[in-house]
Structure formats: structure tokens, C-alpha cells
């Protein structure tokens, strides 16, 4: 487990007043563990700093007022019941929401000192640096090679394409599986392989953030396992934000967890997603500071 940054106590969300340090390997964290001192195994540098982020669909508020710094070289998990806006929020981080007609994002998301939603920012440039892996594997109906090479070609990367393809496949630990059938159609691969191909495809354009929207929800446990291992390897070089329905998965892989919920105080038809708590994963699962988080992680609702 990489412990490349010094252990630091960091206060992450407003409800938190104190923070204790602990050191623990991520795969040991489980929702059933007794509360124990948590250690922030991460940097103090945020890759995204979100302030007052609202998402509206056709003028209707869908996600309200998210404040969250997302740390570099960490895995941040977004959890919560369906409809809580965690995926919507994830898609704000690389401006995929721009593609939905009528979607509007307010507030600021600062990435490397630039507000992603500033007027002069080009969403295409944003997506070159912030890659995304989707819920269902979505390889292109082309060869394995062409799947990987597409990204580097369209962003105009220089270099030997064969090398770029090989290195991306190696990083996604897929090389050994597919090195003999690079010309085969990706549709012939298994679901787990397809998803790792999609990860390799995203890595090929050398992003520095990887957004993953329930990447394992369509996969079997073994494939899920491999992807989780891969994520833990990748966080040395990338910052990862993952949306997951699977609380165990969040507990296994993430450093930080953000819990979203559905706020229905405005009535059934005015459901709004809100960030309840954002903290060190172990703390979220063992000592949440908000009652709603506790009810969710202990399985009382959601």
C-alpha cells in the first residue's frame, strides 16, 4: 500500500471538528470493524475543490450545494441511495453533464487552479485530462487495438502507437490476456475484460484523474476483484473518484468516502441530492458524524 505522503490529519467537511490519525491498509477497512483511530493515508493536495456545486435539469434542482475537496492520489468513493445525485455529481467533474440537454451546473469546481466551469474552458480539453469509465462496459465495436488507439489519435498524441497501446494495456493489467488478439473485436471479450479495456482506453490518453461510475455493477465478483486491485495500483499515479452502490466496495478501496442522500423536504416531486458527509472512509463506516450516514451504512435504509 503506498504511503507516499506523510500522514496528515485533515479536516474535510464542516461537521467535523476533530480528526484522529490512523494507519490502515485499505483492504482491511470494513464496515463491520470496531471504531479505531483512522489515519489519512493521503496527500493534502486537492485535485478538485468543489464549492457550492448545484446541478439543475431544465431549471429544476437535482443536486444542491456540494462542497468537497477531492484529494490527489486518493480514491474517493461516492455512495448513497439511488437518486441521490452521486452519478450526476461525478459527471460534473469532467463536464459530461454538458451533453445532457437542459443540464446546468452552478458553483465552482477548481482543478489545477482553473474553474472547470469558467466561460473560456473547453469541455473537450477538460475530458482529455479527466478520464471516465462507465457503468456498463462500452467498448467501441472495433478491435482491441483500435479501442485503445482511438483516444491517443483524437487528442493528437505523438509517439509510437503500438507502444502507447501496449503500455495502456499493461497498466490495466490486460496485456497478457489480449496481446495475441489485438485485432479481435472487443465485443467478443468477457464483461470484465471489456471493462478493463475501457479502463486501459481511458489511461491511454494519460489523464490525471479517473472517474468511475459504478464500474463493477455489471460484473461478476472475480472481475470486480480484479478491477478493485487495479484501482489500488492506479492510485499511485492517478486520482480516482468512484461512484458505487456497493458499500463493501467503497470500504475496500477508498481513502475518502462522500455520502449523498435524497432530500425530500421539498416534497416527493422535488427530490434533491445532497452531500451529507465527506470523510475518511473508515470514519464514515465506523463513526459517522451524521445520523443519516449511520443509518445508511448500517443498512437501515437505502
Amino acid at each position: 500500500m503506498p504511503e507516499k505522503t506523510d500522514t496528515a490529519e485533515s479536516q474535510i467537511t464542516k461537521p467535523m471538528d476533530e480528526q484522529s490519525a490512523s494507519s490502515s491498509a485499505h483492504h482491511e477497512v470494513s464496515p463491520h470493524l470496531e471504531p479505531k483511530p483512522a489515519e489519512a493515508a493521503a496527500s493534502t493536495e486537492a485535485i478538485f475543490d468543489c464549492k457550492g456545486v448545484d446541478v439543475l435539469y431544465s431549471g429544476k434542482l437535482a443536486v444542491a450545494d456540494v462542497d468537497a475537496p477531492i484529494m490527489k492520489n486518493e480514491i474517493t468513493a461516492l455512495i448513497g441511495p439511488s437518486g441521490c445525485g452521486k452519478s450526476t455529481f461525478l459527471r460534473c467533474l469532467n463536464r459530461m453533464n454538458d451533453l445532457i440537454p437542459g443540464a446546468e451546473v452552478r458553483g465552482s469546481i477548481v482543478y489545477h487552479g482553473q474553474d472547470l466551469y469558467a466561460k473560456d474552458v473547453d469541455p473537450v480539453q477538460v475530458r482529455k485530462h479527466i478520464g471516465m469509465v462507465f457503468q456498463k462496459p462500452n467498448p467501441f465495436p472495433k478491435s482491441v487495438y483500435e479501442n485503445i488507439a482511438f483516444g491517443p489519435k483524437v487528442v493528437g498524441m505523438k509517439g509510437d502507437m503500438d507502444e502507447i497501446v501496449e503500455s495502456a494495456l499493461r497498466r490495466a493489467s490486460l496485456w497478457d490476456d489480449v496481446k495475441d488478439r489485438l485485432k479481435d473485436n472487443a465485443f467478443g471479450m468477457s464483461g470484465g475484460q471489456q471493462q478493463r479495456l475501457c479502463i486501459a482506453r481511458a489511461l491511454a490518453v494519460q489523464p490525471d484523474v479517473l472517474l468511475m461510475d459504478e464500474p463493477c455493477s455489471a460484473l461478476d465478483p472475480i472481475s470486480t476483484n480484479r478491477i478493485e486491485d487495479l484501482m489500488l495500483e492506479l492510485k499511485e499515479d492517478f486520482s480516482i473518484v468512484i461512484v458505487t452502490h456497493n458499500m463493501q466496495q467503497a470500504a475496500r478501496v477508498s481513502d475518502k468516502t462522500a455520502f449523498f442522500t435524497v432530500d425530500m423536504t421539498g416534497g416527493e416531486s422535488n427530490r434533491v441530492g445532497r452531500l451529507v458527509e465527506h470523510d475518511i472512509t473508515e470514519k464514515i463506516f465506523t463513526q459517522p458524524s451524521d445520523k443519516r450516514t449511520e443509518e445508511y451504512v448500517t443498512g437501515k435504509f437505502g
Binding site: A46, V110, Y111, H112, G113, Q114, Q125, H129
Partner: peptide
């Protein structure tokens, strides 16, 4: 205090501008 985002400005961060 909240952690400081990498305030590299346009210089050190990737160029995202149109």
C-alpha cells in the same frame, strides 16, 4: 483549515482553455 487545492494557475496545470 481545508487543504489547499493545487493553485498552479494556468501556468503549471494543463491548459483547458478554448
Amino acid at each position: 483549515n481545508t487543504p489547499q487545492p493545487a493553485m498552479g494557475g494556468g501556468g503549471s496545470g494543463p491548459n483547458l482553455l478554448r
